[in-house]
Amino acid sequence: MKKIVSIGVIFGSLFLLIACDDVLEENITDDLVTTVAPKDKSNLDGNSVQFRWDELADADDYRIQVVEEATQRSVLDSLVKGNNFTYGLNPGEYSWRIRGENFAYTTAYSFPISFTLSVSDDLTNQTVFLTSPSENFYTNKDALILTWDRIQSATSYTVVVDKTIQGNTATEIQTPDLTNNNFTLSSTVMSEDAIYTWKVKAVNDNSETKFSTRKIFLDTQAPNQPTLASPNNDAKGSSPITFTWNIPSDTGEIQSTLSSVIEVATDSGFATIIETVPTSSNSQEITFSNLGDYYWRVRILDQAGNKSIYSEVRKITVE
C-alpha cells in the first residue's frame, strides 16, 4: 500500500508541475503575428531577404516558413527569436508565413505572403553567405577548406585571412580574383596556434559586397592530465558509486571549454571497458549490475578535439 501511495504522490506532483507550467504561460492560441516585410507581392533585388514582424507580447519564439512557389518545396522552417531574420535565397518566387510560440501554446500561422526575388548586378547590399567552417570553429587541424555560397552577379571573390596571437593581429593572406567558391587554408598559413579570421567579399565590374567574416581557433595543445579525487584506490562501496576528479585549467595560446570522459573496466589494462561516459562535469554516478573489482580512469578533451593523457588508474570493489 505504501508503494502505491508513493507512486500516486509522484504522478500527482508531476501532473501539478506540468499544469503549473501551462498556467504560467499565456494562452496565445487566438493571437496572430503581424508581418511587416516583405509585403505581399513585393519585388526584391539581391541574394537575401530580411523577414520582419511585430513581436507578440507572450510569444517566446517565432517559427518562420518559406516555400518556393513553383515547386511548393520548403526552403526554410526555423525557430527564431526577436522580430527579424535574414536568410539567403536564390532568385525566384516565394511565399512566407510565421507564427508565435511559447512553452505551452502556439498561434495560428499568418496568411502566406508572396514575394519575388530577382538578380541584381549591384552587389553593394548583397551578402556573401559563408558555409564552412562554422563560426567560432575550434580545430587541431592545420589545413582547412573555406566555402561560401555563390552570388549570381559576382565575377570573382576576395579572401583575406588575419592571424591574432596574444592580442596582436596581422594579415596573413589577401587573395583577389578567385572564381571558385572555396579556398584552401594550408599549414603554411595556419602555422601556429592562433585565432584565424577569414573574410570573403564578392566583386564585379561595378560594385562589391562588404566582407563576411568568421573565426577559426587553431589549438594543437593537449589539455593537462586530470587527477582523481574519489573514491580512493582500493576503496570499497555499494552501487551506485559517484566518481569525482579534478579538471586542470586549459593552457596554451588558444583555450576552450573542457569536458571529460570516464572509463570503467573489469581489468587494469582496460581490455574490457564496461562504461565510457562523456560529461561536462567533474563527477559521474555509475550503477553496477554485478559485484566485484573494477578499475576507472579519466581523460580530458578540449573543443578542438585534443585529448589529455589518462589519469592514474584506481581500483574500486563493489560489494
Rank of each mutant, 00 (worst) to 15 (best):
T124F: 03
E135P: 12
W148G: 04
T147R: 08
L146E: 00
T139E: 00
S132N: 09
R150T: 05
D142W: 04
T127Y: 11
T147F: 04
K141N: 14
Q152S: 13
N136Q: 10
R150H: 12
D149G: 13
L144W: 01
T127K: 12
T147Y: 07
T139D: 02
S134I: 08
I151N: 01
D122E: 00
I151E: 12
D122N: 09
W148V: 11
A143S: 10
L130K: 10
T127G: 07
L144G: 00
T139P: 00
P133T: 11
V128G: 01
T139Q: 03
D142N: 13
T139A: 01
T131E: 11
Y138Q: 12
F137G: 11
D121W: 03
I151A: 02
N140I: 07
V128A: 01
Y138N: 08
D121L: 14
A143F: 05
P133L: 04
F129S: 03
K141S: 11
N140R: 01
R150I: 13
V128H: 04
S153M: 15
T139R: 02
T131V: 05
L144C: 08
L144N: 15
N125V: 04
T131D: 05
T127I: 15
Y138K: 02
T124H: 11
Q126N: 07
L130F: 10
L146N: 01
T124Y: 07
S132P: 06
E135F: 14
T131I: 06
N125W: 02
L123P: 02
S153V: 05
E135W: 07
R150Q: 12
T147W: 00
N136L: 15
S134Q: 13
D149R: 15
R150M: 11
T127Q: 11
T139V: 00
Q152N: 15
T131N: 09
P133R: 02
Q152V: 09
A143Q: 14
L146I: 06
F137Q: 15
L130G: 06
L123Y: 01
N136D: 15
N136K: 15
Q152E: 13
S132M: 13
A143D: 09
L144T: 00
N136H: 14
T147K: 07
A143C: 10
